[in-house]
Amino acid sequence: MESTGASGDLLALAGDGLLAGRAADGDSRAFGILIRRHAPVLRAYVNRITRRPSDTDDVLQEVALAAWQALPQLQNPDAVKGWLFRIAERQAFAMLRKQPQTAEIDEELPSADDSLARFDDRDLLRGALSRLPAQQARVWVLREVGGLSYDEIAEELDVPVSTVRGALVLARKKLLDVMGGTA
């Protein structure tokens, strides 16, 4: 027996922790609300890691299925957003491993509309990131946006830590170069 009606709408107001707890107990409705709530940012993160937006629906689907399976083991339901980010990373890496690196074709990521004449710092960053080689941009995003350690990035991308450090230095230099112009 599952409640319906008004509580369905009210459930959308619940915090992440409550939704994650209910989802862990088997409430698929709470799970749907939780995943839909974070899907836009998870999509953006996966896009930034893979640079393959056309594959992101598939990755997100795997993220959601993996999350559903693992939710009963989640120790702190209030920290579910960060936990979903870790799952998104793993699924994004899995997708990258499936696609040979040579076949990597950068697709267009969100960018500001030039005609809006609203070109702020972050638009500049977005543009600079899109001009970086995929691996450099990916490593930078994982470190600065995802907060992963050098060791974690190296392990996930299956490269030596020195390679990660090297890619980060190059990425930071290029980004600083671009951003420095507006200081």
Partner: peptide
């Protein structure tokens, strides 16, 4: 510059998400 980059990295995904 590094601190500024870090600051901007913070809201990058939210803005990406808002754009689509």
């Amino acid at each position: 510059g590094l601190e500024r980059l870090r600051l901007m990295a913070g809201g990058l995904l939210e803005e990406d998400a808002a754009l689509e």
